[in-house]
Amino acid sequence: MTAGGTTRNGQSGSEGQDDQEKLDLRLYVAGKSPKSMQAIENLRRLCEQYLPGRYHIELIDLVEHPKLARGDEIIAVPTLVRRLPEPIRKIIGDLSDTEQVLVGLQLRPKGVHGP
C-alpha cells in the first residue's frame, strides 16, 4: 500500500494543533473530468473549514498512474481515502455532500447535523 514518489500535488496545513490528530488524506481522480475538478474543489473548501491545519492531501491522477488504483483498492472515482488515523476510510463521489464527507471522515457521528 504505497504511493511512494507519485505524489503530484501535496498540500498541507502548517499550523499544527497538538491535541488533535492530523489527517492523512489521498484523493484519487481521473484526469480533469468535471467530477474530479469538483471533488478537488470541494475537498479544499471542506478541509479549510473543518480541519484547518490538521490535514495533508495527496492528489493522485489515475489516468497518469493507473497501477496505483490497485494499492488503495480504488474502484470508483473520485475516491477520497483517509489513510490516517486508522482505520482506513473511503469516501466516494464528488464530495458535494458535505455531511456525508464529515461522516465518512468520522468527524461527525452519523445522523447528527452540523452547523
Binding site: 484519487y28 481521473a30 473530468s33 467530477k35 469538483q38 471533488a39 470541494n42 489515475l62 489516468v63 493507473p66 497501477k67 488504483a69 490497485r70 483498492e73 480504488i74 474502484i75 470508483a76 472515482v77 473520485p78 475516491t79 482505520p87 482506513i88 476510510r89 473511503k90 469516501i91 466516494i92 463521489g93 464528488d94 464530495l95 458535494s96 455532500d97 458535505t98 456525508q100 464527507v101 461522516v103 465518512g104
Partner: peptide, 23 residues
C-alpha cells in the same frame, strides 16, 4: 471492497474499475 469502510458523498463513476481493467 468492503462496504463498511465506504461512504458515498456525491456523484461518482466506476473509472477506477475501467482504469484497472484497461491497465
Amino acid at each position: 471492497v468492503d462496504s463498511a469502510e465506504i461512504v458515498a458523498a456525491g456523484a461518482f463513476d466506476l473509472d477506477g474499475v475501467f482504469i484497472r481493467l484497461a491497465s
